[in-house]
């Protein structure tokens, strides 16, 4: 019994704030706090009418989409390459590639600005945001695809070649269908990571907004529940994408 109470308090501590955000996004009062004053969808309606939110929303979606495609493509090639080298080399490369995940996001964000904007002269904006997101998402793609390739029977590729397939045809007809679910999962995880990010985006987006930088800007001027509505939308998107990714890729956490 005592353990259930402790577990209950723990869950309340962990999920309570998030639950409140969602609850208040449906509250009629303009001030965030109890009593909420009844159920309403006004705050969502306000967002629909807000052109600033529109552009932030589409920027976030295109960043997420581009990150998903590019991180999955490059991560898949890296994973296939890493399967062909020694385990020691694989560990070393993975450690290096995982650094952007382990380092403080602030450091990564500054590094991206230093390299891409100051160093290479790319202007601030969506392309640099996507480059930064790829840097963070790609290690996850590599791990997911490698986990799938570890269970992959190389003899199926050999068999395809033996039956007359070129390397490319064997990849397209035999390898790709077998790892497709892992790739879709990896793409969804990448999209979720991109939607999630605030720090890299705020450093590199320049004049525009993603959803998270839009919220940041709004927080400093207003404090009405439309922010809660945005947060709820973001929550549904990222949790939904991650859950879908886990389901599609059947990823069990092993490498």
């Amino acid at each position: 019994m005592i353990w259930r109470v402790i577990l209950g308090l723990f869950l309340l501590f962990m999920l309570g704030p998030i639950a409140l955000v969602v609850v208040f996004s449906f509250g009629a009062n303009a001030l965030i706090g109890f009593p909420m004053g009844g159920f309403t969808l006004d705050w969502y309606g306000k967002l629909v009418a807000d052109t600033g939110f529109h552009s932030a929303f589409w920027t976030s979606l295109s960043a997420a989409f581009s990150t998903a495609i590019l991180a999955t493509l490059t991560g898949m090639l890296a994973a296939i390459g890493l399967m062909k080298v020694t385990p020691g080399a694989t560990r070393a490369v993975l450690a290096a590639l995982a650094l952007p995940v382990l380092l403080p996001p602030l450091v990564v964000a500054i590094a991206i600005v230093v390299l891409f904007v100051r160093g290479l002269g790319l202007g601030l904006g969506l392309p640099v945001v996507v480059l930064g997101h790829i840097l963070v998402a790609q290690p996850f793609v590599i791990l997911i695809v490698m986990a799938r390739l570890a269970r992959f029977d190389q003899a199926t590729v050999d068999a395809a070649r033996d039956l007359g397939a070129t390397r490319l045809a064997a990849f397209r007809l035999v390898t790709l269908p077998q790892i497709a679910s892992a790739l879709v999962g990896a793409a969804l995880v990448s999209a979720a990571i991109s939607l999630d990010d605030f720090i890299i985006a705020s450093f590199t987006i320049g004049g525009g907004n993603t959803i998270s930088t839009f919220v940041w800007g709004k927080m400093r001027t207003t404090l009405d529940p439309s922010i809660n509505a945005i947060a709820t939308i973001l929550l549904v998107l990222t949790v939904g994408l991650s859950a879908l990714a886990l389901k599609v890729s059947k990823y069990k956490g092993q490498v």
Binding site: A155, A159, A160, D162, P177
Partner: peptide
């Protein structure tokens, strides 16, 4: 292998699971 008049039965069969 794709250009040879040989075909192989693999030890682990290598059947296409999809």
């Amino acid at each position: 292998p794709e250009k040879r008049p040989t075909n192989m039965v693999f030890q682990s069969y290598g059947l296409f699971p999809h």
